[in-house]
Design a protein around this nucleic acid. Structure first.
Lengths: 348, 348
DNA sequence: CTGAAAGCGCTTACAG
DNA sequence: CTGAAAGCGCTTACAG
């Protein structure tokens, strides 16, 4: 119960009264600037009735202009909130790492929420009054965006989908380029019969990767055999399923480009069951570069999405927006890189 | 900037003054009960100097008894804090999942901190006034424990190490049993020459797994060849290193029990390089059952630590302590289970 | 609808 | 080391 508040005791921060730093806007100041009394400001702040609409508006404007904050908001450690649709995502931990790095450097707490837990998640987030919210994977929808905007809390989409979400500032990866690079790598090794296992139809990032694949194939004058184009969920199981189907073809592909690493591991298993060796009988390229990619046997050649960097960039963007500064760019696309390991080789 | 405080406006909660609910303990009440003045209580609350040790103690006792809370604490959404030494841990995300599940069910926010980020992490945590703190992997040390105790915030160790940390309530896994079960599985398949790759010396959980291995070997009357006992860090690299050394022995083992899944994947690579097949030439058992264990080739037989359940149990324990109730047990050890997959078979 | 007055909870500056 | 007094920020009850 010591309840030491560092904003009062520590670091020589000049303090006047409870929890309020010198020079910060008080109700009295707002009242003066709005040409009303302190009680009226108080009513506006607390949403009490008995204030004319026009007066209320004027007061709210001054509150915004002066960046008024309740005294208790000061004692709260400022925090950055990250909303995941579900923690199931294998990408989650790496993203968190990037966000945490930036947040820690700025002495900010990080909170996180699973939006799948129910529709009330935003209420909880709003009560915590984060300085900004990062929504991963389309976790925040239009309605949530509006409520956050109304509270003056900036929202940034961390957005492996590449889907433009109602003009929300966002960070993503260069998916098309990744698809292009992966396919070029296989073409340069001498492959021509290259299959691709894509993602679900609505998933724009998957579409971009596919288009990159097509572009590389076209540029090399390599034919895209429609029977080599498969798509499904981004899961190990679908990798196994499509891998088996591809290897069972009369003329199977000599290489497969997978829309993510999980699919690639499924293809590994399909090859194992079919008695084909990777990379001798089949080259495989993934996408993401999750940690286990380099521990798989053989180590997986894949396209690296810089998830930690993306998290860090999203945090930077969010915190810039939180200060009211206009950031240089509202959409950031981070480069993807091909990581060539042991799952690709020239065809026999 | 509307800053509506739901505790003031909403739900008919009776309110007297700013943010304080009717009947809640005020500084004045505490002062009266402690036989001091309000200013003295204020000094204690804020850790200011100029209070006799004895007086401070008396006041702190009353604060605890009366469950005093700062008025701003009321407006804050209650939160449960999880402290990780580093997010590097592959176990982190699964633990978080379990914690989040319990916390969400009780409408609690979850915050998380990396303690590796610096010695100031506890200050930040204390400012957020979590209802409880869960320290993963010995993240909180004696000093931190004392400060949390002084603030009346319960601490629970989630403790794969099995190390009893200064009588802090904790949740762990049945490591000894896991080691026993894994080794028995190999013995039952007919192996006798079974190697073990253990963890670092200070790591008690690793020691428990090793002891379980020894117990199973002894019970089966199988000799433990000292050259088959190796130890190092719990990394892929050390798995590779020890795996190569073991396979290079004049009489190599027919099976290896690894202290975690990462080591096992390193042994996979060692086998691959030595041209030995798993499980035909070498059986491998891991420990943890991380998600990628079932995606490795062949799918890894391993001892499952129920990390999500452990996170959930730690959260339950923490929240029980937070209500002031004495929990039924202060140390919980969750069962481990052998998951037999494709990396183990009878020796040739 | 508005604000002067009263009052609450807490903190600070300072006298003893 | 302690607390009476003063004061701050905010809210409430109520008069106009």
């Amino acid at each position: 119960m010591t309840a030491v508040d560092p904003s009062v005791t520590g670091k020589g921060v000049p303090v006047t009264r409870r929890g309020r730093r010198r020079g910060e806007t008080t109700v009295a100041v707002v009242a003066r600037l709005a040409g009303v009394s302190a009680p009226t400001v108080s009513k506006v702040l607390n949403g009490h009735p008995g204030v004319a609409a026009e007066t209320r508006q004027r007061v709210e404007q001054v509150l915004r202009e002066q960046d008024y904050r309740r005294p208790d908001a000061v004692t709260q450690a400022p925090m950055l909130e990250v909303a995941f649709q579900a923690l199931e995502s294998h990408l989650a931990i790496e993203i968190m790492r990037g966000v945490a790095q930036v947040a820690n450097a700025r002495q900010l707490a990080v909170g996180f929420t699973e939006t799948a837990s129910g529709p009330g998640w935003l209420d909880h987030v709003l009560r915590r009054r984060p300085v900004a919210v990062i929504a991963v994977y389309g976790a925040a929808m239009r309605r949530e965006h509006a409520r956050l905007a109304a509270s003056g809390i900036p929202l940034v989409a961390l957005d492996p989908t590449g889907e433009p979400v109602h003009s929300v500032p966002s960070v993503g990866a260069a998916n098309w380029n990744g698809g292009l690079t992966a396919t070029r790598h296989l073409l340069e090794l001498g492959h021509r019969r290259i299959a691709m296992i894509g993602g679900p139809p609505g998933f724009l990032a998957a579409r971009a990767r596919l288009d990159g694949y097509r572009a590389a194939m076209d540029a090399a004058g390599a034919e895209v055999d429609p029977s080599l184009l498969r798509s499904g969920t981004l899961s190990y199981e679908d990798g196994l399923r499509h891998g088996r189907a591809l290897l069972a073809l009369p003329t199977p592909p000599t290489a497969v480009f997978c829309c993510n690493d999980l699919l690639a591991l499924g293809v590994y298993e399909a090859a194992r069951r079919a008695g084909r060796r990777i990379p001798d009988d089949l080259s495989v390229v993934g996408f993401d570069d999750l940690e286990f990619a380099r521990w798989s046997g053989p180590a997986l050649t894949t396209v690296r999405q810089p998830l930690a960097d993306m998290g860090a960039a999203a945090a930077d963007l969010a915190l810039t927006l939180a200060t009211g500064t206009a950031p240089p760019r509202l959409r950031l696309e981070l480069a993807t890189t091909l990581i060539a390991r042991a799952s690709t080789a020239p065809p026999r």
